[in-house]
Each structure stands twice: as structure tokens, then as C-alpha cells.
Nucleic acid binder design. Structure first.
Length: 677
DNA sequence: CGCATGTGGATTTTT
DNA sequence: TCCACATGCG
């Protein structure tokens, strides 16, 4: 194993709080890790310390994260360009560890499964459910919302309630679904943890150490999992930040820290020093802290936070395009710039303008195999080729509208190829992705004449490569490796092709505030900080608290520079034109308010040029712009606001003082103003 | 089947 | 606040 530096140096570089966390050896310990306080650094040093100084073998440590991304990041930092393979078998997400236990250690047969069960995504479970409803002629209300109902009412079912919410056959469906999943040897994500917990109760598995990252996100099932893993000799080290709980709506328990202290009598440590953000940004963030605690900065004041008030999302996008070009021209890579917003669709306007302005960008959307249709299909082909009992995969492979065989002849051919795949793989040494591609004659189904042919072929080939790589890494026989890979690709297959490209690409990142968690950027813009949008009006006080934490997470992503903005005209049915009260909560000495008029007149001439072009293009067909640009003091008539006097105007915007409604600002071409002289 | 009435949900999303 | 769907009545 080749580490970057010797352990002594690694520990020497820590501050006293971090050091204390690394060296502690309590039975259970929770670390309150504030934003940007070097949480991962501590976790990595802890693993090294336990291994080298305490001689804990890696296979006696269980290291748990919530996302594959967090697991990958930690793995990256634990080992650096090593040549030896390090055995750390119980390192990964909660679900992947549960999977590992079920596959290799716990007797799944007792639950009615065999060891080669596969993990399915929620969509596949939904399809199974729909099939069962038809087959058994079940009466289910609100079938269009079945996915949600399955999720929501599962708990009631498991708690042994007898009546469904709408008094239909939903509970019957649950029990049929359970049987069917066992029959087809399939488990869902939830099942993984539940089954592991069920078996761990009877078949204990106790490591020497349990190390948990982002523990504040644990849900009930995950806490039970921790309880099962922790034997009397087991030590627990959990790190998290109660100020970053933003997923309680999908089940993470509100007060995990409290629960941990209660269940495990855990001691509590704090990492108070933030290394990420300039002190202006950090001071602003502190206003939104909920869990008292101490949060100390370590950096210079830096830039003040700029608060802007653009007219509408379009003008905002134009402004950002110009600003980003300037930042980039000053030598900052695009990937150090991020724009956050509350709702997914808010990226639309930005995307349009960025395309027009040739700014490379990436919208962070969850990408699964399902989002790449050709791989979704190809995976079904491989699944059936691997396991002839997976009739669901067979039917999907043969019946696909786009990629499925078009003629009866092709159909028989593909079926035959899939059925003989295992035998073929046993006889031949498969070294290249192309071998698989050619044997299955994938070319027939990708239609070489179609526009997407090249891209799709590449995607299939790199998917095959990924499988080959996996088998090689795990030192498994090709068929076994592939079967393992496919059985759990719902769990890991997600970042297959895109993720790596995304992370390194030099592009501006657009994402929701939720998606920003765990990331950091030099330049951060949070847009749409309007009343009614941030915070999004919720039903309860708890919802409101979570919105505040969400905003806290957003602003603490910024290292050097932060801009917040709210629209005058948000063009959203939800939002109102006023600024969010979160903006007035930030102490004034930390902020600068941009005056919109000044903004338009001086800094953003270039943007206005393009704005005009765009606006003219949009309205060219409908409106003929006045030849002469009218001077001030002209009278205008507006169909809603009545009579008014022009106060100021430039090429694009016009400000009118109305007799009854006061001052209003319009984009000329869209304002609907009638000039009276 | 067509129409009137009732009801729930709307946003964020990992594994 | 509005939309989509379920239900029930004629």
C-alpha cells in the first residue's frame, strides 16, 4: 500500500480538534463536523491510524457512506496510486454492505432467496406490481400514483395495519409482491437493509470498528443496521453535521445525533474550524445555523456578498452569461463556477442562454442506466443471457420498441444467441468488449443507418468494457463477474459512463440546492432567492427549518465569491416579486446591493446587446419596433396601468411613471406600451 | 357513457 | 390556487 505520506505527518497536519477525533477510542463517538471542517480528512486519518497504530485489520472495519460518490471520494483519498491491492471488504454504502453480507455471509436461503439474487430498481418493482394487479384482478385506487402509494403505505403494512388508506386491495398487493420477488429472486433497495437486519438478529456479525460518514442522513432502518453490527467489543465512530440535514422528507430521522447518544451512550466531539469559505461568506452562513455550536472561520474576509435584483429569469441568465465570461477571462476555470436554484426547471432559461453564448455547462441530473435507452435495453439482453430464469429481462429485451428485433427471424436469432451465451463464454476467452458485441450481433439492433448509431455502439462497447474491468478487478471468471455486476448494477451501475466525465469536465455546474451538498466551488451564484421560492412554503415548522438548512448548505459551498439574487418578475406561479426574508437576515455589513439601473447601464452593455437581439428575434414577427427611440417626457398608455410618463429608457428597457400605479419597468418589445404622440 | 362532484397533491431525490 | 383523476349518478 502506498500512501501519500507517513501516518505521523498525516496526524501532525491536523488541528487539535481533528487530532482528538482521530485518536479517541471510546466505545461510541459522534463527531459534530461543521461545514468545511475537514470531515473526510479525519475519516481517512482515522482508518490509517486504526490500521497502522492499533493493528486493526481492514477486514475488521466496516466503513459506511450514504452515496457511491462519497464512497468513491474516500477510497480515492485512502490510497494513492498504489500497486498492491488493499483488501477493505466492508467499505461502501449502507446498501452495498448489506448486499455484501447477504451475498457472502448471511444465509439468505432462510428468507426464500438463493445467493445469486439480483437487486432491482424501483421501476422494475413497479412493473411487477402492475403485472400482479392485472393477473389477480386487484382493485387498487389511484393506480397512477402507485409508485408513491407503494412507498408511503408500505410502512403501515409492515406495522401490521389492516386498512389501507383508500380501503382497496393494496395490502394484498404487498403480500403478493413479496412472494413474487422471492419467486423471481429479486430484492429492492429497501429489502437489502431489511433482510440484512432480519438475519443479523439471528446471525451476528460484529466488526472491531464501525465508521460512518454523514451519519445525520441515517434513517430508521440504517440505525437498526448499526445497532446490529455493533457488538460489545465493537467501537463506533460516526461523523456528521446536524446543520446539513436536508433529506428528512425522504426518511432520515430528525435527530440522529440525539438518538446515537441515547442508544450507544456516544460521546460527542466537534470540528469547529471551517477551512473552506472566506469569513464574509462564513459569517453570513452563521445566521442560518440552527444547532447552536461553534463555527470558526480560518480565512480572510474576502469579497462581500453581492445581492442583485434582476428583472426576470431571462435577464438573470443574460447577466450570468456575461459575468461568467468575465470570470473565466480572468483565468478561473468554468468548473469552479456553480449556479444553484430551488427547483429543477429553473435551469431551463439558463441553458438556453448558455447555449447561445457558448458557455460550457453541465446540469446535474441523476443519470441512471435507464436514462440511456440503448444501455437499458442492452442490460436486459445480458441479464437474460446470464440467467435464463429472468423472464422479465427476456421479454424486455425482445419486446423493446426501439432496439428489440424487428422480424420473427431476428427474434429467434437473438433468443438463440442469448440462450447460448453462457456456453459460448465458457468455451472462449473473452478479452475484448467487441467479442461480446459481435457474438450477440448487436449491430442488427442498433440500426447502422440511424443517426445515433455511432454513439450507441460506443456506449454498448464501453459498458462491456466496464464489465470486463470489473471481473478483472475482482479476479473473477468472466461469467461470474458479469453476473455479479448485473445483479447489483442497480446499486453501482449508475455512474457508469457519465459521472467520471462530468467531474473533470471544465464546465459551469447548474444544480438544485439539494444536489450541491458535499461540493465546493470558488464562485457560487444562488438565483431566485424570492419570497415564496426560498424558502418554499411548507406545511410545518419542521419543513421551514429544513429550508433554512438547505439555504445554509447552498451558501457554504462557496469558497471565495457568492452572489444571491431575486427576480422582480419571477415568472413562476409560486414565487412573488419580493426578496426572500433570508436575504434580510444576512448582516448588512457583509453584503453589497447592486442597483439594477446602474447594472444595466454600465457593466452589462454587452449583455444588453444580446438581450436585444434575442428579444427582437422573439418578437420580430409580432411587433414592429418604433423607428425613432422616443425621448423622455413622452406619454404612454398601458392597457393595465393606464396613462404614464417615460422616465428613462435605453435600447431595451423603459421605465415609466404611471399616474395610478407608480414606477414600472418593461422590456420595450414586450411591454405592450402604446406611445401617445 | 357523460357529466357533476370529490379528493389529493403540487418541491427536493439516494440506494 | 389549479389540475388530474376517481367515483357516483342518471
Amino acid at each position: 500500500m502506498a500512501k501519500i505520506m507517513p501516518l505521523e505527518n498525516e496526524i501532525e497536519r491536523l488541528n487539535k480538534y481533528q487530532k482528538e477525533a482521530v485518536l479517541e477510542e471510546n466505545d461510541a463517538c459522534v463527531v459534530n463536523a461543521n461545514v468545511g471542517s475537514g470531515k473526510t480528512t479525519v475519516l481517512v486519518a482515522k482508518v490509517h491510524y486504526l490500521h497502522e497504530k492499533k493493528e486493526i485489520p481492514y477486514e475488521k472495519m466496516v466503513v459506511l457512506t450514504f452515496t457511491n460518490k462519497a464512497a468513491a471520494e474516500m477510497k480515492d483519498r485512502l490510497w494513492f496510486g498504489e500497486t498492491e491491492t488493499v483488501e477493505l471488504p466492508f467499505f461502501g454504502t449502507f446498501h452495498s454492505i448489506a448486499l455484501k453480507l447477504l451475498k457472502e455471509i448471511l444465509p439468505v436461503e432462510e428468507l426464500g432467496y438463493t445467493r445469486d439474487f439480483s437487486v432491482i430498481e424501483p421501476d422494475e418493482e413497479l412493473e411487477l406490481a402492475e403485472q400482479l394487479i392485472t393477473d389477480h384482478d386487484l382493485h387498487i385506487k389511484y393506480k397512477n400514483r402507485l409508485k408513491k402509494r407503494l412507498e408511503q403505505e408500505k410502512k403501515a403494512y409492515q406495522d401490521g395495519r389492516t386498512e389501507t388508506r383508500y380501503q382497496d386491495d393494496l395490502f394484498q398487493l404487498f403480500s403478493l409482491l413479496l412472494k413474487e420477488k422471492k419467486k423471481q429472486n429479486k430484492v429492492t433497495f429497501d429489502d437489502l437493509l431489511q433482510y440484512a437486519n432480519e438475519l443479523l438478529e439471528r446471525y451476528p456479525f460484529h466488526p472491531s470498528w464501525i465508521i460512518v460518514d454523514e451519519v445525520q442522513d441515517s434513517d430508521k432502518e440504517q440505525l437498526i443496521f448499526l445497532q446490529h453490527l455493533k457488538g460489545t467489543e465493537t467501537k463506533l465512530f460516526a461523523v456528521g453535521d446536524p446543520n446539513q440535514v436536508i433529506y428528512s422528507w425522504r426518511g432520515s430521522s430528525e435527530n440522529v445525533f440525539y438518538t446515537l447518544k441515547k442508544i450507544f451512550h456516544a460521546t460527542e466531539l466537534t470540528l469547529p474550524i471551517n477551512y473552506r469559505s472566506s469569513s464574509s461568506i462564513l459569517e453570513a452562513a452563521k445566521v442560518f445555523l440552527q444547532n447552536g455550536g461553534i463555527l470558526e472561520g480560518s480565512r480572510e474576509p474576502g469579497h462581500k456578498i453581492l445581492i442583485r435584483n434582476p428583472y426576470n429569469p431571462f435577464q438573470e441568465a443574460e447577466y450570468l452569461a456575461g459575468k461568467i465570461k468575465k470570470i473565466h477571462a480572468s483565468g478561473i476555470p468554468y468548473k469552479e463556477i456553480a449556479i444553484f436554484y430551488r427547483l429543477q426547471h429553473q435551469s431551463e432559461q439558463l441553458e438556453k442562454v448558455f447555449i447561445k453564448e457558448n458557455i460550457p455547462y453541465e446540469v446535474s441530473l441523476k443519470k441512471t442506466i435507464k436514462d440511456i435507452p440503448v444501455l437499458d435495453w442492452f442490460m436486459k439482453v445480458l441479464r437474460f443471457a446470464c440467467k435464463q430464469t429472468d423472464l422479465y429481462a427476456r421479454d424486455k429485451a425482445l419486446g423493446d420498441k426501439v432496439y428489440g428485433p424487428a422480424t420473427e427471424w431476428d427474434k429467434q436469432n437473438l433468443l438463440h444467441k442469448m440462450e447460448t451465451f453462457t456456453a459460448w463464454a465458457k468455451e472462449n476467452t473473452i478479452l475484448k468488449a467487441d467479442d461480446i458485441y459481435r457474438y450477440l450481433e448487436i449491430d442488427i439492433y442498433l440500426h447502422p443507418t440511424s443517426a445515433n448509431y455511432q454513439i450507441e455502439k460506443e456506449q454498448v462497447l464501453s459498458f462491456c468494457n466496464r464489465i470486463l474491468e470489473y471481473a478483472r478487478e475482482q479476479e473473477l471468471d468472466f461469467m461470474i463477474g458479469m453476473s455479479n455486476f448485473l445483479n447489483s448494477s442497480a446499486l453501482f451501475g449508475i455512474q457508469i459512463l457519465n459521472q467520471e466525465i462530468h467531474e473533470t469536465a471544465d464546465s459551469v455546474k447548474l444544480m438544485t440546492l439539494h444536489a450541491s451538498k458535499g461540493l465546493e466551488f470558488q464562485y457560487v451564484f444562488i438565483i431566485g432567492v424570492n419570497y415564496g421560492l426560498i424558502p418554499l412554503p411548507g406545511k410545518s415548522f419542521e419543513d421551514e427549518d429544513e429550508e433554512r438548512r438547505l439555504f445554509f448548505v447552498g451558501i457554504t459551498r462557496a469558497k471565495d465569491y457568492l452572489e444571491l439574487s431575486y427576480y422582480t418578475n419571477p415568472e413562476q406561479y409560486r414565487a412573488v416579486s419580493g426578496e426572500s426574508r433570508y436575504l434580510s437576515m444576512i448582516p448588512e455589513h457583509l453584503t453589497v446591493r447592486a442597483d439594477r439601473k446602474k447594472e444595466n447601464k454600465t457593466e452589462d452593455k454587452a449583455d444588453l446587446q444580446s438581450l436585444r437581439k434575442q428579444v427582437q428575434k422573439q418578437t420580430a414577427a409580432k411587433t414592429v419596433l418604433p423607428e425613432q427611440i422616443p425621448q423622455t417626457e413622452r406619454k404612454v398608455q398601458h392597457k393595465r396601468y393606464g396613462l404614464g410618463t417615460i422616465q428613462a429608457e435605453d435600447d431595451v428597457m423603459v421605465t415609466v411613471q404611471f399616474e395610478k400605479y407608480g414606477k414600472k419597468q418593461f422590456i420595450k418589445a414586450l411591454g405592450g406600451l402604446e406611445y401617445l404622440d
